[in-house]
Simulated assay, not measured.
Amino acid sequence: MKWQSLLASFAIGLIPAGAVHAAQADHVTASHAWIRLLPAKLPAAGYVTLQNAGSSAATLVSAHSAVYASVMLHESDVESGGMNGMHAVNQLAISATGKAMLAPAGYHLMLEQPDRVLKPGDKVEITLDFADRSHLPVQFAVRPANTADPN
């Protein structure tokens, strides 16, 4: 009987310790999520503002969607030689109690090969993946190509 009581006390004591190690995604909120829809089969771009309320950094490492075959984190390059470009990035850190913006001419999600024809007004769920393997599903509003950044 003593062992059962001791074991129960030990198990109960572990519950708060597990709660201390909350997932990165639990501390991040997403707002102003939208997709710039381009014509034909051109890749679309996803933008979102991420706010980290946690006391440690959160690191976005990838994203995925049931609608798009490919979702990649990219950063637009500074204009060089009259040409704008972009490159894939492996991660984006969101500092403790900080904010990161995926916005035109900056970080963004490159969205390729949708499974259906999308139109302005549609909603697309994209799941953001963090370094600790936690996930944050976010609803993105589809907007036309000529949309100015609504943020």
Rank of each mutant, 00 (worst) to 15 (best):
A66S: 15
E112Q: 15
T59W: 02
N84P: 05
P39L: 06
M86P: 01
H108K: 04
T59N: 12
H74A: 09
S70C: 08
S70P: 01
E75P: 00
V78D: 13
T97G: 08
A57G: 09
V71E: 02
L111Q: 06
L92C: 02
I35E: 00
Y107P: 03
K99H: 11
M86V: 07
M110T: 09
Y68S: 08
A66L: 15
Y68C: 07
A69I: 06
L109R: 03
A96M: 03
S65V: 06
S62D: 15
V48A: 07
S62T: 15
S55E: 14
S55L: 13
V48T: 10
L37A: 04
Y47S: 03
N84L: 14
G46H: 00
A58Q: 01
T97Y: 07
G85H: 04
A69G: 15
L111D: 04
H108C: 05
S56K: 11
G85W: 02
L60I: 11
G46F: 00
S65Y: 05
P39D: 14
V71Q: 02
G106Q: 07
A58G: 05
H74F: 09
G46L: 01
L73N: 01
A100K: 07
S76E: 09
I94Q: 00
A63L: 13
D77R: 07
A63E: 04
G85N: 07
T49C: 11
I94N: 00
G46S: 03
A96W: 01
A105H: 10
A40Y: 08
Y107F: 15
I94K: 00
L73Y: 00
S76I: 01
A63H: 06
T97I: 11
V48G: 06
V67P: 00
E112S: 15
L73C: 05
L92R: 03
G54M: 03
A105T: 12
L109G: 03
A40R: 15
T97P: 01
L38T: 12
T59F: 05
A100C: 06
S56F: 02
S70L: 11
L111V: 05
R36K: 09
V78Y: 06
I94T: 02
A69S: 15
L38V: 08
Q91A: 15
S65I: 08
H87G: 11
L60D: 01
G82P: 03
M83K: 13
